[in-house]
Design a protein around this nucleic acid. Structure first.
Length: 441
RNA sequence: GCUGGGAUAGCCUAGCCUGGUAGGGCGCAGGUCUGGAAAACCUGUUCUCUUAGUAGAUCGGGAGUUCAAAUCUCCCUCCCAGCGCCA
């Protein structure tokens, strides 16, 4: 949630930020309309309550002296009716205002590029040597700066065909039992997934993160604080008859961990590495990546999360991106880093970097990591503060994927295909965790 | 799921029976004192409102009774203890 006081003091900051995001500024106009009415009403209510309190004291005084002040009591009853009328209206105004405030996006960071679409994201840098099929070379060059590449003789098999041919993923039966975008994962691929999870946890543990397996469900209040309306609408599964939602990322339970708490300044920064399944409806993505395990309703993800002091958050943003990059370097997966367009940012993020791995079969860079600095936006909604000199202040929160298993598995399959047989090589870093070097038919 | 006990400001706690300005302690901040510090003492220390007041709200959340609710009544949430069920 944004800071209402700041919105009142410096409306132009918000108008500019919303325009750059392609967010309709009518919402801001509505806020100011409602807020003005709200403040007007508040004054009237306070005035009436003051009268009421004064008269109530007179009643107490009179009764102590043995009198029956029925005249004053009647007056208070009248005032109560007027207060009730105002308060019913005020409650409605407040609800509308809160609804509106909650959808106003975070203030953009000045380094978030001003543009509207996914394609215009600013290239930050690239790493590795991509395997490119000649047909894709144009697209690759346009989207990769001067990144190194080697040309492929033939297009690598798509992971969809590969996993089914090898019998390590059963999509048809998953469709039967659960629907589209589900999977049964089998044998060595299961081991590889768990290897990836364990590797990522060791990796982050060594870098000072506390490992956390959070609840996989959150109640409305926690979820509302941790995320935004868009996520609710498009991605969350609700448990029928209960005040519970399946998490779509460990970010949310990690963010809500300190809900309504005041942290000691010396305890910051707090680095948490969450591991959890992620459940996503993927509403609105019909027709995209419909086959295979690239975009699914359920996958496992290891997520980095940091709570810190406001003045430090951009340093920690760099740290998160570096961790994620190091992770993908160690998995030998070529990638590019992009600075996401103002128009393509989520509501919470002031700035967001994506890491996009190169997928040789698809001939594209695709998102495997998303790193955001939510500044104080999420912390304000969740009421997470720290004790600072001169008063409690909201912390800043940041999050970044370390590894999302399914997507990373696809990247591994497509980048490491074996030449003479059906299968792929396990990245060296994972071999100690798998105990085998290849997965082949 | 059942029975009982709890939830008061950053933390701890009084007040609840018997309705009438939420009191104290710790911690923190400022001040007096000091060469400096400690101690002691004083002041402040929830939120809201750009008329900042002799203002309003606030005692886990909501509703009710009353001129008036932390206090009485009802519903709900969470925590603790005991019992039950349970991989």
């Amino acid at each position: 949630m944004i800071d209402i006081k700041l919105l009142r003091e410096k409306p132009n900051l918000f108008y500019d930020s919303c325009k750059a995001r392609g967010f309709d500024t009518k919402v801001l106009d509505q806020f100011f309309q409602l807020d003005e009415k709200w403040r007007e009403n508040l004054k009237a209510i306070n005035q009436l309550k003051h009268e009421k309190n004064t008269l109530s004291l007179e009643v107490a005084k009179a009764m102590k002296e043995g009198a029956e002040p029925s005249g004053i009591k009647d007056k208070v009853r009248e005032i109560n009716i007027r207060i009730d009328q105002f308060e019913v209206e005020q409650k409605e105004i407040e609800e509308s205002r809160t609804r509106i405030v909650r959808i106003i996006p975070n203030l953009l960071d000045k380094e978030a590029p001003r543009c509207l679409t996914e394609e215009e994201a600013a290239l930050v840098h690239t790493w590795g040597k991509a395997k490119v099929f000649p047909e894709d070379l144009d697209t690759f060059r346009k989207s990769s700066g001067g990144m190194e590449y080697e040309l492929l003789q033939s297009r690598p098999t798509s992971h969809v065909d590969l996993v089914q041919d090898m019998g390590i993923v059963d999509l048809e039966r998953a469709a039967k039992t659960s629907g589209a975008r589900f999977y049964y994962m089998k044998n060595r691929l299961v081991k590889l997934e768990l290897a990836l999870v364990n590797y990522a946890l060791d990796f982050l543990s060594e870098r000072g993160f506390d490992l956390v397996e959070p609840p996989f469900m959150l109640n409305y209040k926690a979820m509302e604080g941790a995320t935004d309306v868009e996520t609710f609408k498009d991605t969350l599964y609700k448990i029928e008859g209960e005040d519970l939602y399946l998490i779509s990322t460990a970010e949310h339970p990690l963010a809500a961990f300190f809900q309504d708490e005041i942290l000691e300044e010396g305890a910051l920064p707090i680095r948490l590495a969450g591991v959890s399944p992620c459940f996503r409806k993927e509403a609105g993505s019909h027709g995209k990546d419909t086959k295979g395990i690239f975009r699914v309703h359920q996958f496992t993800k290891i997520e980095q999360f940091i709570y810190c002091k406001p003045e430090d958050s951009w340093d920690f943003f760099k740290e998160l991106v570096k961790n994620s990059e190091d992770m993908f370097r160690s998995l030998e997966l070529p990638y590019r880093v992009v600075n996401i367009c103002s128009g393509d940012l989520g509501n919470l993020a002031a700035r967001k970097y994506d890491i996009e791995a190169w997928f040789p079969s698809q001939g594209k860079f695709r998102e495997v990591v998303s790193a955001s600095n939510d500044t104080d936006y999420q912390a304000r909604s969740l009421n997470v503060r720290y004790r600072a000199k001169g008063g409690n202040r909201f912390v800043h929160t940041l999050n970044s994927t370390a590894v999302a298993t399914t997507r990373t598995l696809v990247a591994i399959m497509e980048n490491n295909q074996l030449k003479n047989e059906t299968g792929f090589r396990v990245p060296k870093a994972l071999v100690p965790y798998t105990g085998f070097e290849t997965i082949a038919k």
